[in-house]
Design a protein around this nucleic acid. Structure first.
Lengths: 137, 137
DNA sequence: TATTGTTATACTCTATAACTATA
DNA sequence: TATAGTTATAGAGTATAACAATA
């Protein structure tokens, strides 16, 4: 039986495969799992509650509890009860967490090695194509 | 501290995030994990040895043993010793495995929902950009 | 002796259900 | 009573090291 796959679909698959592999290697080089690096990345834009993290990471709250606990044990994030509603825990990245997060970015060579091959014009083209594909609706 | 991220890098991150999430949902809809669906997908082009699968899936051979065992227990793949070298096990997809694999493809809506928004011209453009980014060397 | 694959083990990821604390 | 988060638990993904079978 022959599997008929659209050539572009296959290319996108390969692209995502390479991207994911590169990100996993970058996280591993710094001693993190991809899930841990991803959570840390989400905190670089500012603190989040546990529930917000669960929504952003598309996973269950109980999973966030464990991920945060492991990162907290390594001093990369801190959990602080929200004064306004003491059920809520605000998670923030520590200075050490920032250093590790930056190290992941430096080790993540996909953007520079792959996207860096494109000219400015090509990058703008790609940006417009991705925007159209991802647009809501 | 402000995180400065190139807009294209961010878009590519979002694109890959959406792609991975969509693939995970497609696999789950058929009762497979993403890793299992991925392994099955790799067999649709023909049989592989355990070692070949480990190389293609970028993981350890002991991991392939477990993934294949679970798929075999559900009748989706078959393990046959290679007559020429009886250390080697050839893994092939069964008829049931093909049906499940096709179901994953049908449930995987990212290509149609997202890439399908692009015109033929845009798809060709995207194909060329990805080819340039992924070219070996 | 070298190679292919498996087993034993351990850790992480992930979800469900039951629980605690707070609102 | 409802909500935020945790704990207990279980299944799956993953790797390392030790092992068996074959070459």
């Amino acid at each position: 039986m022959t599997e008929v796959t659209d050539p572009l679909d296959q290319q996108v698959w390969n692209f995502v495969y390479a991207y994911d592999a590169a990100y996993g290697r970058a996280a591993q080089a710094v001693g993190l799992s991809a899930a841990q690096a991803c959570l840390l990345e989400h905190l670089t834009g500012g603190g989040r509650s546990m529930g917000e993290l669960a929504v952003e990471l598309l996973c269950d709250a109980s999973n966030v509890t464990q991920l945060v606990s492991r990162l907290e044990a390594r001093g990369l994030v801190a959990r602080v009860p929200d004064p306004a509603d003491r059920r809520v825990k605000r998670v923030s990245i520590t200075a050490a967490g920032h250093r590790v997060s930056h190290a992941v970015r430096r080790a993540f060579d996909f953007p520079s090695e792959r996207l860096g091959r494109l000219t400015e014009h090509e990058r703008r083209q790609l940006s417009e194509l991705l925007a159209k594909a991802l647009a809501p609706g």
